[in-house]
Design a binder for these strands. Structure first.
Lengths: 347, 347
DNA sequence: CAAACCGTCCAAAGCGCTTTGGGGTTGAGT
DNA sequence: ACTCAACCCCAAAGCGCTTTGGACGGTTTG
């Protein structure tokens, strides 16, 4: 069933049917009702491709997922972010177009979406140092919202980020208050913006407390269980191991916990762990009493909000950037305790 | 830059330019070369919407992701499956359209994709008991491939599945050979087809060995760390706890391991664990020596293959169903050992 | 009572592509 | 010299929608 057929059934012109369906005022309520009922009955829905060809708007948003050539990692937060963004698109009648490409084809994928007119806007994932994407998107005039911030790019772009620096500063301070002085950081890949900020927050808290940064306690890698395990194990093998660890993600923390178990150490009592919890749906950090003490912020909500911001930008055509910085919430869990040497003294 | 502009620049008709770009034989090699070079220079790419309006083919594949209303779980395997499918689409010049909807809007989402002509085919995720989707898709004549199989549906549809039954039978047999008799199953949600088959495989191995099924050793729930933890903890609290556990996923196994740690038990020595490993990129089960003994099969590869099958179906218009049943590979890891009572005797 | 106006509807153009159905131009064959 | 493929190319229709610029009665206004 297409518009022509529907209008013939109704004995109306395509124009009138189209206007009735799209809520234009120049059609009487009686006819509109008749049209809507017929559309319902015949299960008519406008052909999106024809619609977007006629209007010039695709009513679709693009997400480009880049697979690192070496390990082809899928970011674990991706699913929940997409779930958030996707439900907003669905509610607004937009489609989500996903493009999965290898790193070297990344820029071309954006170009493609733009020049083929298949999307009206784009969400930029995982901004990194020297990221060429914002500049490209600005140049080809494709509206976009960055999930995170682009280090070194000072164009007037829209973004939504969590305050990674403050979160990790807060987490580190919390551990320092508990008496820890040998505090490790298992960070994300440090070519990514969020990881750099987390590192900065961690270092600034140590600085403020007069604790020197020990590069032996710094680890950086992908958000995997394996990396958490290997990272902490390496540190525990050192002569002066950490008594506390900040983990960039729950997966890493799970790996770190395994390293503790292997070493016969008990999480909390022997080594404290603070994590950043993205509240992934398949990795719940306990409900009433969290397993890990965590700085948490929902990546699902971030996906929703990024989508909202982008849709609004597209709808209004407004050029002024929207920026949101969300604070993570500190949740006390069972993975942190006073530093072991203090407990010894107190005992 | 559109086709008209490009053809004007070249002094050719739109027809010729179109044919040159699409590799039709009735254009001389010299002109084709000229056209391709100009297209490259002006960075011309055909407008997808116009293209699909003209051809009647959308060159897009739909994936509908259903968010359970209660907990809104995102399936952890989703990311890697999508990565696999997505790279195949990208290679074939297809778009991937993702629709994230609440359960009650699911069928409507499929209807929508079909009648709006926004996709040429669909991948069906997570088939379950009494699944209405294959029938609907058959009725509206939208080609589809099911990842898994649809219990109780005997239409001639295409699917790709792993041999869940045999995998879990094999895993259970392996544990029985090690002397275990109290073997628990931490399964997925048992309204889903794959979980039913795994349960059947587990039970058939027990039957064959003359071991009665103890419902106290059966757990079923989502693929989360929490469910693995709670499930095993409950079993360990029983008077006659299991000495071995089969886990439907690595996340559950990680939770199960935590339950063991809490109970002061050692994985492998006290309680053996066998998992099904989907080889998720962010949950690697060790490389040379796996942490968990596992039946493994790459969900990424499954995504690739599902996409290939669907694209082929669409290209050829072939109605005969394609079906593939993949066997999981048994990988020995460090999570399994002979049953404790045997070790005692041998000692 | 004519003019202006309003509410309701329509014919037709146009979005950017593909595809049908030819139409010139060559060069070989007769 | 003429025919006839073969080869290249083109004009125009059509995909299903939106949107412009009226048309057509009926009502209100000066």
């Amino acid at each position: 069933m297409n518009l022509r057929e529907l209008s013939e059934k109704l004995g109306l012109s395509q124009t009138t049917v189209s206007r009735a369906l799209n809520g234009f005022p120049e059609v009487s309520e009686r006819t509109r009702k008749r049209v809507l009922e017929a559309a319902e009955r015949y299960n008519y829905r406008p052909n999106t491709r024809a619609q977007s060809l006629a209007t010039g708007r695709a009513r679709a948003i693009g997400h480009v997922i880049t697979l690192d050539t070496s390990h082809e990692m899928m970011n674990p937060i991706f699913g929940d972010f997409i779930a958030g963004a996707g439900s907003v698109y669905a509610g607004a009648g937009y489609e989500m177009i996903l493009s999965v490409v290898r790193a070297e084809e990344e820029l071309d994928a954006y170009q493609d979406m733009a020049s083929r007119r298949s999307v009206d806007g784009i969400i930029v994932h995982g901004p990194r140092v020297g990221d060429p994407r914002p500049e490209l998107l600005d140049r080809i005039r494709l509206p976009f919202v960055v999930h995170g911030r682009v280090p070194g790019y000072d164009g007037p772009y829209s973004w939504l980020d969590i305050n990674n620096r403050r979160a990790f500063r807060r987490g580190t301070e919390f551990l320092i208050e508990l008496g820890h002085r040998r505090i490790a950081l298992l960070n994300g890949l440090e070519n990514l913006d969020f990881a750099l900020r987390r590192r900065a927050g961690y270092e600034s808290a140590l600085d403020a407390a007069g604790i020197p940064v020990d590069t032996g306690l710094l680890g950086s890698g992908e958000m995997t269980e394996t990396h958490g395990y290997l990272g902490l194990r390496r540190m525990l093998d050192r002569p002066d191991p950490p008594t506390a660890v900040l983990c960039a993600s729950m997966l890493q923390a799970i790996g770190a916990r395994r390293a503790l178990d292997d070493a016969g150490l008990r999480m909390g009592r022997d080594v404290s762990i603070v994590i950043h919890d993205d509240m992934l749906s398949y990795l719940r950090n306990g409900d009433a009493l969290p397993l890990f003490t965590a700085l948490r912020s929902s990546v699902r909500k971030a996906g929703e909000r990024c989508a909202e911001i982008l849709l609004e930008k597209i709808a209004t055509g407004d050029q002024t950037p929207t920026r949101e910085l969300w604070e993570s919430e500190l949740m006390l869990g069972r993975s942190t305790a006073r530093a072991p040497h203090l407990l010894d003294t107190e005992r």
